[in-house]
Simulated assay, not measured.
Amino acid sequence: MTILLIIIGMSLVTMIPRVIPAFVVEKLQFRPWINRWLSAIPYAALGALIFPGIMTVIPDQPMVGIVGGIVAIVLATFGLNVVLVVIGAIATVFLMTM
């Protein structure tokens, strides 16, 4: 019984900080420049998560990851589906390591 209460308590502590902003931010009105800045955050976070992985695909050969990243950027520029962009980058890295 104690374990169940601990699990429920931990789930509530985790869930509350994630759910509250969804309801609070919806009611707030920001200035246009703040909205532009906030809309850029997901791209910046995604770049910060992806770039180190690109550089360390093969530790001895960072160019393989860089070429795969460039292929992904080019495919994304053409407006392809995200799945196709990822498959294209993976195929490029795979072909370069053969």
Rank of each mutant, 00 (worst) to 15 (best):
A76H: 04
F23K: 06
I41C: 09
I34W: 11
S39R: 14
M63F: 14
K27D: 11
V24G: 00
L12C: 13
T97K: 05
M63D: 12
I50L: 09
V83N: 11
G65M: 03
L28A: 12
S11H: 07
V86K: 01
G47F: 08
I7R: 02
A91E: 04
G65H: 01
A72G: 14
V85D: 01
V71Y: 06
W37N: 00
L49A: 12
A45N: 13
I58K: 06
V57N: 03
V67T: 14
W33G: 00
F78A: 04
V74E: 03
L95K: 07
V86L: 06
G9N: 02
P62R: 02
T97V: 15
G65N: 01
T2N: 06
I70R: 02
I73V: 15
T97A: 13
L80A: 01
P42T: 05
F51W: 07
R36F: 06
W33C: 03
I3V: 06
L38T: 15
W37G: 00
G47P: 08
M96F: 09
T56I: 07
Q61V: 15
V83T: 12
T56S: 13
I7E: 04
A91Q: 04
I34F: 12
I66P: 02
V64L: 07
W33N: 00
I6Y: 07
A72W: 05
Q29K: 11
I87C: 07
A22M: 15
D60G: 10
L49C: 13
F30W: 10
A76P: 02
F23L: 13
A89I: 00
M10I: 15
I41L: 12
G88R: 00
I50S: 02
G65Y: 00
F51Y: 09
I8H: 04
Q61P: 00
I54Y: 09
P62Q: 02
Y43R: 14
A44V: 15
I66S: 04
G47A: 12
I16L: 13
A45Y: 14
S11K: 11
M98P: 07
G88H: 03
